[in-house]
Protein backbone atom coordinates (compact mmCIF):
# COMPACT_ATOMS: atom_id res chain seq x y z
CA UNK A 1 0.00 0.00 0.00
CA UNK A 2 1.47 3.37 -0.99
CA UNK A 3 1.61 6.12 1.61
CA UNK A 4 -0.91 8.33 -0.12
CA UNK A 5 -3.49 5.54 0.01
CA UNK A 6 -3.28 5.40 3.76
CA UNK A 7 -6.35 6.60 5.53
CA UNK A 8 -7.40 6.09 9.10
CA UNK A 9 -10.94 5.44 7.99
CA UNK A 10 -9.81 2.62 5.75
CA UNK A 11 -7.76 1.15 8.59
CA UNK A 12 -10.72 1.14 10.90
CA UNK A 13 -12.94 -0.50 8.30
CA UNK A 14 -10.37 -3.21 7.69
CA UNK A 15 -9.62 -3.73 11.35
CA UNK A 16 -11.12 -7.22 11.74
CA UNK A 17 -9.50 -8.56 8.61
CA UNK A 18 -6.11 -7.06 9.44
CA UNK A 19 -6.17 -8.43 12.96
CA UNK A 20 -7.06 -11.87 11.65
CA UNK A 21 -4.32 -11.73 9.02
CA UNK A 22 -1.73 -10.56 11.57
CA UNK A 23 -2.52 -13.53 13.80
CA UNK A 24 -2.66 -16.15 11.07
CA UNK A 25 0.22 -14.55 9.10
CA UNK A 26 -1.55 -15.00 5.76
CA UNK A 27 -4.34 -13.79 3.54
CA UNK A 28 -7.10 -15.95 2.21
CA UNK A 29 -6.53 -18.88 -0.14
CA UNK A 30 -8.36 -21.75 -1.73
CA UNK A 31 -10.13 -24.27 0.48
CA UNK A 32 -7.30 -26.75 0.15
CA UNK A 33 -4.64 -24.14 0.92
CA UNK A 34 -6.65 -22.98 3.90
CA UNK A 35 -6.74 -26.52 5.27
CA UNK A 36 -3.01 -26.98 4.86
CA UNK A 37 -2.29 -23.53 6.31
CA UNK A 38 -4.56 -24.27 9.25
CA UNK A 39 -1.94 -26.83 10.29
CA UNK A 40 1.46 -25.40 9.44
CA UNK A 41 0.54 -21.77 10.06
CA UNK A 42 -0.43 -22.46 13.66
CA UNK A 43 2.22 -22.91 16.31
CA UNK A 44 0.10 -25.26 18.37
CA UNK A 45 -0.90 -27.44 15.45
CA UNK A 46 2.30 -27.48 13.43
CA UNK A 47 3.62 -30.45 15.42
CA UNK A 48 1.32 -32.29 13.02
CA UNK A 49 2.29 -32.91 9.44
CA UNK A 50 -0.05 -31.31 6.90
CA UNK A 51 -0.95 -34.77 5.62
CA UNK A 52 -1.00 -38.04 7.54
CA UNK A 53 -1.04 -41.62 6.43
CA UNK A 54 -4.44 -43.26 6.74
CA UNK A 55 -2.90 -45.99 8.89
CA UNK A 56 -2.25 -43.43 11.65
CA UNK A 57 -5.97 -42.74 11.82
CA UNK A 58 -6.96 -46.36 12.46
CA UNK A 59 -8.43 -46.32 15.95
CA UNK A 60 -7.72 -50.04 16.31
CA UNK A 61 -4.02 -49.48 15.71
CA UNK A 62 -2.98 -46.99 18.42
CA UNK A 63 -6.23 -47.00 20.40
CA UNK A 64 -5.27 -43.37 20.95
CA UNK A 65 -3.36 -44.46 24.05
CA UNK A 66 -0.47 -42.03 23.67
CA UNK A 67 -2.86 -39.22 22.93
CA UNK A 68 -4.98 -40.08 25.96
CA UNK A 69 -1.82 -40.00 28.12
CA UNK A 70 -1.02 -36.56 26.76
CA UNK A 71 -4.55 -35.28 27.35
CA UNK A 72 -4.43 -36.52 30.93
CA UNK A 73 -1.15 -34.65 31.32
CA UNK A 74 -2.83 -31.46 30.07
CA UNK A 75 -5.76 -31.94 32.44
CA UNK A 76 -3.27 -32.50 35.27
CA UNK A 77 -1.40 -29.29 34.45
CA UNK A 78 -4.60 -27.26 34.38
CA UNK A 79 -6.14 -28.74 37.53
CA UNK A 80 -2.77 -28.75 39.30
CA UNK A 81 -2.31 -25.05 38.63
CA UNK A 82 -5.67 -24.32 40.24
CA UNK A 83 -4.86 -26.54 43.21
CA UNK A 84 -1.68 -24.56 43.79
CA UNK A 85 -3.80 -21.52 44.70
CA UNK A 86 -5.12 -23.41 47.71
CA UNK A 87 -2.13 -25.45 48.82
CA UNK A 88 0.78 -24.71 51.15
CA UNK A 89 3.63 -27.22 51.38
CA UNK A 90 3.78 -27.11 55.16
CA UNK A 91 3.17 -29.99 57.55
CA UNK A 92 1.01 -27.62 59.61
CA UNK A 93 -1.20 -26.45 56.78
CA UNK A 94 -1.23 -29.05 54.01
CA UNK A 95 -3.84 -31.32 55.55
CA UNK A 96 -6.05 -28.37 56.52
CA UNK A 97 -5.82 -27.14 52.92
CA UNK A 98 -7.18 -30.52 51.84
CA UNK A 99 -10.11 -30.21 54.23
CA UNK A 100 -10.77 -26.69 52.96
CA UNK A 101 -10.80 -27.97 49.40
CA UNK A 102 -13.32 -30.54 50.49
CA UNK A 103 -15.65 -28.31 52.52
CA UNK A 104 -14.94 -24.64 51.81
CA UNK A 105 -13.63 -24.02 48.30
CA UNK A 106 -16.32 -23.90 45.62
CA UNK A 107 -15.95 -27.04 43.49
CA UNK A 108 -12.81 -27.81 45.51
CA UNK A 109 -13.71 -31.49 45.85
CA UNK A 110 -14.23 -31.83 42.12
CA UNK A 111 -10.94 -30.09 41.44
CA UNK A 112 -9.08 -32.45 43.74
CA UNK A 113 -10.89 -35.49 42.36
CA UNK A 114 -10.06 -34.52 38.78
CA UNK A 115 -6.39 -34.17 39.65
CA UNK A 116 -6.24 -37.39 41.62
CA UNK A 117 -8.09 -39.62 39.16
CA UNK A 118 -6.27 -38.19 36.15
CA UNK A 119 -2.97 -38.95 37.87
CA UNK A 120 -3.89 -42.59 38.44
CA UNK A 121 -5.26 -42.85 34.92
CA UNK A 122 -2.12 -41.35 33.42
CA UNK A 123 0.12 -43.98 35.01
CA UNK A 124 -2.16 -46.70 33.67
CA UNK A 125 -2.49 -45.25 30.18
CA UNK A 126 1.22 -44.57 29.76
CA UNK A 127 1.81 -48.21 30.61
CA UNK A 128 -0.86 -49.35 28.15
CA UNK A 129 0.65 -47.07 25.50
CA UNK A 130 4.01 -48.73 26.07
CA UNK A 131 2.34 -52.13 25.62
CA UNK A 132 0.79 -50.96 22.33
CA UNK A 133 4.15 -49.75 21.08
CA UNK A 134 5.72 -53.06 22.04
CA UNK A 135 3.08 -55.36 20.56
CA UNK A 136 3.05 -53.47 17.25
CA UNK A 137 6.86 -53.57 17.09
CA UNK A 138 6.93 -49.80 16.83
CA UNK A 139 10.23 -49.42 18.68
CA UNK A 140 12.24 -50.81 15.78
CA UNK A 141 14.55 -48.73 13.61
CA UNK A 142 14.33 -45.81 13.09
CA UNK A 143 12.22 -45.39 16.26
CA UNK A 144 14.65 -46.85 18.83
CA UNK A 145 15.47 -43.53 20.39
CA UNK A 146 11.86 -42.49 20.71
CA UNK A 147 11.26 -45.65 22.71
CA UNK A 148 14.15 -44.60 24.98
CA UNK A 149 12.56 -41.16 25.40
CA UNK A 150 9.35 -43.04 26.19
CA UNK A 151 10.98 -45.06 28.96
CA UNK A 152 12.13 -41.81 30.55
CA UNK A 153 8.60 -40.42 30.17
CA UNK A 154 7.30 -43.49 32.01
CA UNK A 155 9.78 -42.92 34.85
CA UNK A 156 8.94 -39.22 35.04
CA UNK A 157 5.23 -40.07 35.11
CA UNK A 158 5.81 -42.48 38.01
CA UNK A 159 7.84 -39.93 39.95
CA UNK A 160 5.31 -37.17 39.30
CA UNK A 161 2.62 -39.41 40.69
CA UNK A 162 4.73 -40.51 43.64
CA UNK A 163 5.78 -36.99 44.65
CA UNK A 164 2.17 -35.86 44.43
CA UNK A 165 1.07 -38.72 46.64
CA UNK A 166 2.73 -37.16 49.69
CA UNK A 167 1.23 -33.70 49.36
CA UNK A 168 -2.17 -34.26 51.08
CA UNK A 169 -0.18 -35.13 54.21
CA UNK A 170 -2.67 -37.69 55.50
CA UNK A 171 -1.91 -41.13 56.90
CA UNK A 172 -2.16 -42.74 53.46
CA UNK A 173 0.34 -40.27 51.97
CA UNK A 174 2.76 -40.32 54.87
CA UNK A 175 3.10 -44.08 55.18
CA UNK A 176 3.07 -44.80 51.47
CA UNK A 177 5.99 -42.44 50.98
CA UNK A 178 7.74 -43.83 54.05
CA UNK A 179 7.48 -47.32 52.54
CA UNK A 180 8.48 -46.07 49.08
CA UNK A 181 11.54 -44.19 50.26
CA UNK A 182 12.61 -47.13 52.43
CA UNK A 183 12.85 -49.21 49.26
CA UNK A 184 15.51 -46.79 47.99
CA UNK A 185 17.52 -47.34 51.19
CA UNK A 186 17.95 -51.04 50.37
CA UNK A 187 20.46 -50.03 47.72
CA UNK A 188 23.89 -51.38 48.71
CA UNK A 189 26.34 -48.82 50.16
CA UNK A 190 24.52 -45.73 48.85
CA UNK A 191 21.05 -46.61 50.11
CA UNK A 192 20.88 -44.38 53.18
CA UNK A 193 22.44 -41.44 51.34
CA UNK A 194 19.93 -41.73 48.53
CA UNK A 195 17.06 -41.73 50.99
CA UNK A 196 18.56 -38.77 52.83
CA UNK A 197 18.85 -36.86 49.57
CA UNK A 198 15.28 -37.72 48.67
CA UNK A 199 13.75 -36.80 52.03
CA UNK A 200 16.12 -34.07 53.18
CA UNK A 201 16.47 -36.07 56.40
CA UNK A 202 16.18 -39.57 57.72
CA UNK A 203 12.41 -39.48 58.00
CA UNK A 204 9.48 -38.07 56.11
CA UNK A 205 8.96 -34.55 57.51
CA UNK A 206 8.82 -30.88 56.56
CA UNK A 207 11.96 -31.09 54.43
CA UNK A 208 10.61 -34.08 52.53
CA UNK A 209 7.28 -32.33 51.95
CA UNK A 210 9.04 -29.27 50.53
CA UNK A 211 11.30 -31.37 48.30
CA UNK A 212 8.44 -33.43 46.97
CA UNK A 213 6.42 -30.27 46.38
CA UNK A 214 9.13 -28.52 44.39
CA UNK A 215 9.80 -31.64 42.34
CA UNK A 216 6.07 -32.15 41.83
CA UNK A 217 5.10 -28.65 40.71
CA UNK A 218 8.24 -27.39 38.99
CA UNK A 219 11.08 -29.76 38.17
CA UNK A 220 9.24 -32.88 37.02
CA UNK A 221 6.50 -31.11 35.00
CA UNK A 222 9.16 -29.10 33.14
CA UNK A 223 11.12 -32.26 32.49
CA UNK A 224 7.99 -34.05 31.30
CA UNK A 225 7.01 -31.20 28.98
CA UNK A 226 10.50 -31.11 27.49
CA UNK A 227 10.58 -34.86 26.94
CA UNK A 228 7.11 -34.73 25.41
CA UNK A 229 8.28 -32.07 22.97
CA UNK A 230 11.16 -34.31 21.89
CA UNK A 231 8.86 -37.37 21.80
CA UNK A 232 6.40 -35.71 19.41
CA UNK A 233 9.10 -34.12 17.29
CA UNK A 234 10.76 -37.50 16.90
CA UNK A 235 7.52 -39.12 15.73
CA UNK A 236 7.61 -36.81 12.72
CA UNK A 237 11.33 -37.09 12.13
CA UNK A 238 11.03 -40.88 12.24
CA UNK A 239 8.51 -40.73 9.42
CA UNK A 240 5.20 -40.61 11.24
CA UNK A 241 3.65 -43.53 13.04
CA UNK A 242 4.84 -47.02 12.29
CA UNK A 243 2.84 -48.98 9.74
CA UNK A 244 3.10 -52.26 7.86
CA UNK A 245 6.01 -52.08 5.41
CA UNK A 246 4.12 -53.51 2.44
CA UNK A 247 1.70 -50.65 1.78
Amino acid sequence: MSESAYSIKESIMQLPRNIKASISRRGEGTAEQERAAAVFGNMFLHVHPVRVHVNSLRAGYTFGLGLISFYLFLILVASGLLLMFYYTPSTELAYRNMKDLEYVVTFGVILRNVHRWSAHAMVAFVFLHMCRVFYTGSYKAPREFNWVIGVFLLLVTLFLSFTGYLLPWDQLAFWAVTVGSNIASYMPVLGDYVRFLMLGGNEVGQMALLRFYVLHVVALPLLAATLLGVHFWRIRKDGGLSRPSND
Binding site: E32, R35, A36, A38, V39, L45, H48, P49, V50, R51, V52, H53, V54, N55, S56, L57, A59, D247
Partner: peptide
Protein backbone atom coordinates in the same frame (compact mmCIF):
# COMPACT_ATOMS: atom_id res chain seq x y z
CA UNK B 1 -2.62 -43.02 1.00
CA UNK B 2 -2.41 -39.82 2.95
CA UNK B 3 -5.17 -37.43 3.94
CA UNK B 4 -5.19 -33.83 5.18
CA UNK B 5 -4.49 -33.61 8.91
CA UNK B 6 -7.08 -30.92 9.10
CA UNK B 7 -9.83 -32.03 9.34
CA UNK B 8 -9.33 -35.81 9.27
CA UNK B 9 -6.85 -36.21 12.12
CA UNK B 10 -7.62 -33.19 14.22
CA UNK B 11 -11.36 -33.66 14.43
CA UNK B 12 -10.68 -37.13 15.85
Amino acid sequence: DTVQSWPHLMVR
